[in-house]
Design a protein around this nucleic acid. Structure first.
Length: 569
RNA sequence: CGGAGCGUGGCGCAGCUUGGUAGCGCACUUGACUGGGGGUCAAGAGGUCGCCGGUUCAAAUCCGGCCGCUCCGACCA
């Protein structure tokens, strides 16, 4: 393997990070000259970064193949009709990069490949004898994200590993899913990034159950609810929680004057009652329909749960004028008298008994508002947002919340795509059946960012050996004949041993070379200087260690291999 | 899409309020010295000050419009 010369390396290190970079990984990736931004959410990956990305890809590839998946390739350019067939042209619409070919036909740049693979399935698979099937691809995908951010964390053009599986039934699927789940743990472990699997919402991909593999870090963009007692972990989007003691009252419905009181906090204070004794109304436009959501006053509505409970596609808070048009009084709204078909209630208000709610008149609230007696809702469902401190549904311990980055997401798709696209097979009885699909994604560049975030210090990156762009960073000091001779000996011994070697052949001072070596973060540094050579010694230093170790020049290569081997354990 | 901020040499920034020859640090080139944690000295190269328009004798600076980038939110594997 040829030695890479620092003087020839395409890219430069920076002493100061560009002002745009916020997180440690983004700053280090820029400072070390690994990535260069071209546009918002669009980056170039210079040679060392590309080496790392290929190593990550290879780990992913090995684990996918070990799980029985076959690598393949699918088109990035696709006719928009394919997306209309699955029904996602609209739901995924704004994220799709659209383009027209010379015949004015509308094409899209694929953001993901469920449609493509389902199309392939129906063209290829006819019999249960052909199942199960598992394929994967690592390709560039394109998403016109509303807001790229965090360096490589959310970008618009990125490599994604996606695997897709097809099984004859739920039982068979579960085996496939479990194997993939294990492959995910293996993959992240090998890349040196700790992850936690959490229950998640399946979002625009669709389907029934899904789990995200989260790297917990303060720079993450997802909120993760965790129970340190029993291990429950879920994205806040769908986390469940116990609602605590109801604080309802018993009595006749009666109105009470509450001038100027329009918030739950104000109401609780004005009437000297706990927020748990109040009902909160929140108004949403759900798939175009004004919807009245009711939840206990101390809780917040989780819009995603709301959408899922109503089997809807989208929701947003109503604008003030829309609230008025619906006949509701912001700040004093009451579910009493509202068409139950437009009301959705959280169990917290149903179970509580009498609560203080609005009276649908400015300046008036009502006491003892009781579900079932005074009002009802067509839908009663969990629409509450779990918060840190809420009780775990499994063990009643207090839940915690941490930020995290979603590195992988695995889904049970069920028949979400096979149904609309009419992908079927014949079973042993000659009956036409629909395959149970799964899909399994990993963002490759995002994973690299997580590797850096999880493996750095104040001086630079500390690459895990498995994905380091170079195994060894050789630093010759001075250009004396003794150094030159030892350098050439070491370089050839290390590269003949199969190591990837970066050699700093620049005429720079020691400090400059050491700082760049720390920044670039190769696991092992080999320092060759006259000072040591007079005793026949060179120095080895693991990047993660503070101090170098002198070793005899003659056995330096073996010592280097041993030092690297010590990292793999 | 709503809110905030920023666009001046490769990177980090000053200059703008009060219009008048575009500056500093790092990096880069050449030379000398130096040589184990971003060294010193000397001499250099490099910028239509994001773009377009306006005001003015004169615009980086004032005014209008647009574009780009970042952050918060919305949204989003």
């Amino acid at each position: 393997m040829p030695v890479t010369r620092m003087s020839r390396l395409f890219g430069r290190t920076l002493r100061e990070a560009p002002a745009d970079a916020d997180s440690a990984n983004h700053q280090l990736l820029l400072r070390s000259g690994l990535i260069v931004q071209l546009a918002a959410g669009v980056y170039s990956f210079l040679p060392p970064a590309w080496r790392t990305l290929r190593k990550i890809e290879q780990i992913v590839r090995e684990e996918m193949e070990a799980a029985g998946s076959q690598e393949m390739r699918m088109p990035a350019i696709q006719p928009r009709e394919l997306w209309e067939e699955s029904g996602r042209a609209d739901s995924y619409g704004p994220v799709l990069f659209n383009l027209k070919d010379r015949r004015e036909r509308t094409m899209v740049l694929a953001p993901t490949h469920e449609e493509s693979v389902t199309d392939l399935f129906r063209k290829i698979v006819q019999s249960y004898r052909d199942l199960p099937q598992s394929v994967f691809q690592m390709q560039t995908k394109f998403r016109d994200e509303p807001r790229p951010r965090g360096g490589l964390v959310r970008v618009r053009e990125f490599i994604m590993k996606d695997a897709y599986t097809f099984d004859v039934d739920d039982d068979a699927f579960q085996l496939t899913y479990n194997a993939m789940r294990q492959a995910y743990y293996n993959t992240f472990e090998r890349c040196g990034v700790p992850v936690v699997a959490v229950q998640a919402d399946s979002g625009a991909i669709g389907g029934k159950q899904s789990e995200e593999f989260i790297f917990l870090t303060e720079i993450g963009e997802d909120n993760i609810i965790l129970c340190s007692c029993c291990g429950y972990a879920a994205n806040q989007e769908r986390a469940e929680f116990t609602r605590g003691q109801p604080a309802g009252t018993v009595g006749e419905l009666e109105e009470v004057e509450t001038p100027g009181v329009t918030t739950i906090e104000g109401l609780a204070e004005f009437l000297d009652i706990p927020a748990q004794s109040t009902a909160k109304a929140a108004f949403f436009l759900v798939d175009g329909q004004p919807t009245f959501a009711v939840i206990r006053g101390d809780l917040e509505v989780n819009e995603l749960k709301l959408i899922n409970a109503l089997d809807a596609l989208e929701a947003r808070p109503l604008l003030p004028e829309e609230v008025e048009a619906a006949g509701w009084v912001a700040g004093y709204a009451s579910p009493i008298g509202v068409d139950p078909a437009r009301v959705i209630a959280d169990p917290s208000v149903v179970e509580a008994g009498g609560l203080v709610a609005g009276a649908n008149r400015v300046g008036m609230h009502a006491r003892n508002v009781t579900y079932g007696r005074d009002w009802t809702a067509a839908t009663v469902a969990d629409i509450g947002m779990a918060q840190p401190g809420d009780a775990c549904t499994e063990c009643d311990d207090a839940l915690k919340m941490q930020r995290g980055i979603e590195l992988g997401h695995i889904f049970k798709l069920g028949t979400r795509y096979a149904d609309p696209m009419e992908a079927t097979f014949l079973d042993a009885d000659g009956e036409r059946r629909t395959p149970i699909m799964g899909c399994y994604g990993i963002g490759i560049e995002r994973l690299m960012a997580a590797v850096v975030q999880a493996n750095h210090d104040e001086l630079g990156i500390v690459w895990p050996r498995s994905v380091a762009p170079f195994d060894v960073h050789v630093v010759p000091l001075g250009g004396g004949d003794d150094v030159t001779a030892a350098l050439s000996q070491i370089e050839s011994q290390l590269s003949e041993a199969g190591l990837q070697v970066l050699s700093d052949d620049r005429d720079e001072r020691a400090g400059v070379k050491f700082n760049d070596a720390d920044l670039l973060g190769a696991p092992l540094r080999v320092t060759i200087g006259s000072r040591g050579l007079t005793q026949g010694q060179i120095e080895l230093k693991l990047r993660r260690d503070a101090e170098p170790t002198p070793v005899p020049l003659d056995s330096a290569a073996e010592a280097a291999l041993a030092a690297l081997a010590s990292l793999d354990g």
